[in-house]
Design a protein around this nucleic acid. Structure first.
Lengths: 261, 261
DNA sequence: TAGTGGTCTAGACCACTAG
DNA sequence: TAGTGGTCTAGACCACTAT
């Protein structure tokens, strides 16, 4: 079936784009619902009277747009969107971590989701450029890093690498442990007298690199949010820089603030 | 030239992925710099001893990842990343718009960029779902909308649609005009006694739809940031909801806030 | 074993750019 | 006009899923 799109004799769009647009239309109007299997490539090729290759290209376009996922040997399916998790600023609430809940859990359990994390690396490393800039040190200066993967209901959704100046780690040595204890790293910092007072987050979005696609098990057509968080103490000194790469389809960032003067 | 990637006899990766990975490696190591032209498809096919089609697929993968752009009749080029524009929360500073500068300009001229905007629509329309939810009204209730495209140094970088409840527009009727005057819409609201006190922004990222790609002239492999801004007055009532779609490669969101209690 | 999507080839023809 | 990338075909063969 051809959709309602303009399809005059002088339609300048390449066939592959027309097919993709038509199928997209059928998805958007609900003709195919999330999770539904689309007709096979052969069927689509016959319907649009074009070659298999063109049909494939059309599906490729839809996969890039995040509308379709394909499973070898089974078929092509309308993508089901996972419920996006909110990252609100109140997850940094001091009372929360004083109650023994880490930032990660604070966010998750409010939404009935199960958050877990897997440690990937715990080591002293030379500071990468983005980290050095924000910590106010020379790139390459040794810093402590905690690299972890966080998962929501079993699906990895974030690669988070936290960097700390060495003297900060000296004061709160539990940061070197795999498990930082109740309330997480921020709670240990406060206990050690490092009073966090300001957080800043910078974010942008881009397509994932190949290793990121694999690590986050990203379906084609899913971008990542690239977030840099800097935590500062009362003197304005940066005591932690976190570089995070998040699966965009599982994250919603949220910020509320008074209108500044 | 084959890169340093593992390329044993049992390399399970499909040829198109190997070629893409190798070229990506040469870009990342600086062998090809941003703006450089890559070898032609024919040359690449010869180098890797594979068909033209495979070479094309490899380049497609790189384009999807935002690393390469191609220009018909000219060649394939390493993508040059535009300098990402920062969207800091101080662009909402009240003193700025009191001085006659709109939020848009406040952000741009601090960075030596030229911001312009083109009005796309100015009308009374039924409230879309996302807007109605935040304004606390029924979907379909009439609201006033200002749809505009903003451009930075001539390139469109944002589609921004602002929705206002009708009674707010009554109080600040300049919102209905194409040009809202010095300081922009927020300044007119304040003059009319609608004192903005809180702003919240929610954002996520996704791949663009076809019309968005066209309107923002997005290169392949560029996601968009989907941002919803809600502005509230002193009573906590939402007086404006903005739905914005931004070219991710031209935007960096930035938020700084005290650690909440 | 049949049906599905994934990879790959060889080659025709079109559209755009540049000299 | 020569060179480049874009579209499209027809068909071989592989890999995975189901029965």
């Amino acid at each position: 079936m051809v959709s309602g799109m303009a399809t005059g004799p002088t339609d300048a769009r390449p066939m592959q784009v027309r097919v993709a647009d038509d199928i997209r239309g059928e998805i958007e109007t609900g003709r195919y619902a999330p999770g539904d299997q689309l007709p096979t490539l052969d069927e689509l090729a016959e319907t649009w009277m074009c070659s298999l290759t063109v049909t494939r290209r059309a599906l490729d376009l839809l996969k890039q747009q995040g509308l379709v996922v394909s499973v070898q040997g089974k078929g092509n399916f309308v993508r089901e969107r996972p419920t996006a998790r909110r990252h609100g600023i109140d997850r940094y609430s001091r009372t929360r971590w004083r109650e023994g809940r880490a930032v990660l859990d604070a966010e998750a359990d409010r939404q009935g989701l199960t958050a877990t994390q897997v440690m990937r690396e715990l080591a002293e490393v030379p500071a990468p450029l983005a980290v050095a800039e924000r910590l106010g040190i020379e790139p390459g200066t040794p810093v402590w890093v905690r690299k972890r993967t966080t998962l929501i209901d079993g699906r990895p959704n974030q690669l988070a690498d936290s960097y700390y100046p060495l003297d900060v780690v000296e004061r709160a040595p539990q940061i070197r442990d795999e498990n930082t204890g109740p309330g997480g790293g921020f709670a240990r910092l406060e206990e050690a007298g490092v009073i966090l007072s300001e957080i800043s987050e910078e974010s942008t979005a881009r397509m994932p690199t190949t290793p990121e696609s694999v690590a986050l098990r990203l379906p084609a057509g899913t971008p990542v949010i690239d977030l840099v968080r800097t935590a500062r103490d009362q003197d304005g000194r940066a005591v932690e820089v976190m570089l995070a790469v998040m699966a965009a389809d599982m994250v919603r960032l949220s910020y509320t603030f008074p209108v500044p003067d």
